[in-house]
Amino acid sequence: MLTEAGRQLLSAAHALQSARASAVQNMQPHTDLPAGTAARLAIRTSMRNQWPCVVTGIEVQGHLVRVHLRAEASEAFRVRSRITLESAELLGLRTGIRVQALCKATAVRAVRDSKDTAVDADGFNAWNGSVTRISRGSLGDEITAALGATLQIVGFSAPGEGLRVRSRVVLKVDESAIVLALD
């Protein structure tokens, strides 16, 4: 059942979508940009996991860069992304800048929390959570898990993992699966 807060969120999303489409349509006749360029400003993504973050560190490793992030909503939620040096330069990444960390749900592995699945001491890209929703499937179950009161992650568990709502899980994602975008 959709709550009043959920209805308000959907209404705001529809208003933003309408405003974005209107702005793109109004901009197109007044620009010399190639056809379709303005429309790409209104891009939407299939990535279900999207977290506002702050860059807390950058490690250059040859042509690769490891970007350390912290979610704005939670000091405990730390993410690491591995991108190319050129991408980091094009985004103008530096410590303190705000970014969106995005990740496909299919890149997130959810496993039952146990001694064998403990989160590493550094806490990057592995999080303890509690299952809030499960959608069963023959190739695996789609899991939505809450990480504290303010964050959630959508991922997949292996077929037959036997997770249920309120099960404790560990969610893991490879740092190369974390995409960065500027707000």
Rank of each mutant, 00 (worst) to 15 (best):
R44M: 12
I178Q: 03
L147F: 13
S135Q: 13
L2H: 10
D113S: 09
A38R: 09
G129S: 03
G162L: 06
G155Q: 09
A71Q: 05
A35L: 13
K172R: 15
D174Y: 03
S18G: 13
R44E: 13
L171N: 13
V99D: 03
A107G: 08
M1D: 04
P159M: 14
E59C: 06
E89K: 02
A107L: 06
T56G: 05
L102Y: 08
M47C: 10
N49F: 10
T45Y: 09
C103L: 04
Q8R: 15
I134R: 15
L2P: 04
V108N: 04
E59G: 02
I178K: 11
R112W: 02
L64T: 02
S81R: 02
K115W: 04
R48G: 06
A181Q: 02
N128F: 07
A177T: 01
S11Q: 12
Q17L: 13
C103T: 01
I134N: 05
A35T: 13
L16Q: 15
D32Y: 14
Q28W: 09
R66I: 08
A76N: 13
I83N: 07
V65I: 07
R164T: 11
V99Y: 03
M27C: 15
L41P: 04
E89Q: 13
L85A: 10
L147N: 08
M27E: 14
R98H: 09
L163I: 01
L163G: 04
A105L: 08
A118C: 02
H68G: 00
R112E: 10
T150R: 15
S114V: 02
D122I: 02
S138E: 06
G129F: 04
L171F: 11
A118E: 14
L93F: 02
A15I: 08
F77H: 03
Q28A: 12
S138F: 01
G123L: 01
E161C: 09
R44C: 07
A21Q: 10
R70Q: 15
S22H: 13
T45D: 12
A177P: 06
E72H: 15
C53I: 04
V55L: 10
P34H: 09
R94P: 04
F124S: 03
I58K: 14
L91Q: 12
R82L: 14
S74T: 00
A12R: 14
R168T: 00
A38C: 10
K115D: 07
A13N: 11
Q25F: 13
D174L: 04
L41T: 01
A42R: 07
E161Y: 05
